[in-house]
């Protein structure tokens, strides 16, 4: 029997690897991938809690379904933004996009 804490720990590690990716990578597409990793970490935690709590109706897993929806929407819109950005100036380097500099 694998304890709940082990799953949560894996989820946390996955999440923070994603965070680190968002912070350190320059390529916008890779940043999107890392965001997806973070979302997956959340999913893992949700399912783990949901299954281990032993409830009849899978309330935690329902949220995983919603996370799927949000992730799909997010990646679609995110890629659209990256594409239109790329069309204006041929780069996906987020460091070079700083028109909002104060």
């Amino acid at each position: 029997m694998i304890p709940l804490g082990a799953f949560i720990a894996v989820s946390a590690v996955l999440f923070f690897i994603g965070v680190a990716g968002v912070l350190v990578r320059r390529n916008a597409v890779v940043i999107l991938m890392c965001v997806e990793l973070m979302l997956n970490a959340t999913n893992l935690a949700l399912v783990a809690f949901s299954r281990k709590a032993g409830m009849i109706d899978e309330r935690g897993s329902v949220f995983v379904v919603f996370v799927f929806v949000v992730a799909a929407a997010e990646v679609a819109v995110g890629l659209a933004i990256v594409l239109s950005l790329y069309r204006n100036r041929p780069t996906v380097d987020v460091d070079e996009v700083h028109a909002m500099k104060g």
Binding site: V22, L23, R26, I31, V94, V97, H98, A99, M100, G102
Partner: peptide, 18 residues
């Protein structure tokens, strides 16, 4: 001083969030 925080770079904003 505060203006410098607004680098316009997404990465910096994400850094602040974290």
């Amino acid at each position: 001083g505060a203006r410098r925080l607004q680098t316009g770079v997404v990465g910096n904003y994400a850094f602040m969030v974290v």
